[in-house]
Structures are given as structure tokens and as C-alpha cells.
Amino acid sequence: MTSLILQTASKLIVPLALLFAAYMTLKGHNAPGGGFIGGLCFAVTLILLRMGVGPEVFNRMVPLHPRVLVFVGLAVAFLTGLVPLLMGYPFLTSYVTDLQLPLGASVHFASALFFDVGVLLVVVGTSVGMILRLSQEVEA
């Protein structure tokens, strides 16, 4: 069920959408965005890609089973919580700092970002995984 228009358009849209998803995730702490939104955006993009290029090409482009993403995401989120515990703070305590960059710029950084990345991975893995499995069922 691939169409030429979608196939061509997806080549343009997918990189932009992925960039947007990454942007959403990174700036989430201080402006609209965050792991959930970024993850959903990411997932929609991947599904669009699969619709565009078809399952075979998609499987070649993304050779990863989504369950790996789910597992890694959960692990990252959990480890983010464990690190402060090892340092004597309560579970999941966030560490906030301003990283100084060259040329006088600075980036506001919170260690909760790692947690957000974990959330993103789980959301992507779950939604993509479910939809892939169901579409396989439909296509079978």
C-alpha cells in the first residue's frame, strides 16, 4: 500500500519531523515539549515512513525490534533515578546546572533530561511496536 506521492514526500518530511521531535525533547524543560511529545512525534514519523516506503524497505532502514527501544528506555529512566540514590539523594532527584559553552554562551541543563530520553524511547517503542504488529496482522 505504498504510493509514489507519499514515498517522495516522506523523504522530505521524515528528516524534518525527526529533527522537530529531537528539538521538542531537548527544549522540553523550559518551553512546550518534552519526552512524551517528542516520543509521540517520533513514532508518528516512523509510521509515516513505513507507510511511505513499505514494510520491507522500512525493516531494512530500521533493523531494530521496537522492544529493544522499550527495554533501553526503561533502563535509562530507571538508572537516571538510581544515580542520585547512589550519591545519597532520594530516588530520581534531578541535578540542575548551567553548562558554560565557549563564546560566553551557556546552556541550562537538568539531569531529568536523561529521564525524558528514557520516556521518549519507551513511548516510541510502544506505539511503533503496537502499530507494526497490528499492520503485519492486517497485511498477512
Partner: peptide, 16 residues
Amino acid sequence: GGGDNIVNVILVDFRG
């Protein structure tokens, strides 16, 4: 929480 986006801070910090 160290962030301006309240929703996100709730998600990852207050209610992590």
C-alpha cells in the same frame, strides 16, 4: 525543578 515548563517539570521531577 530547574525548568520553566511546569508540565514537563511535573512529569520528570515532581511526579517523576
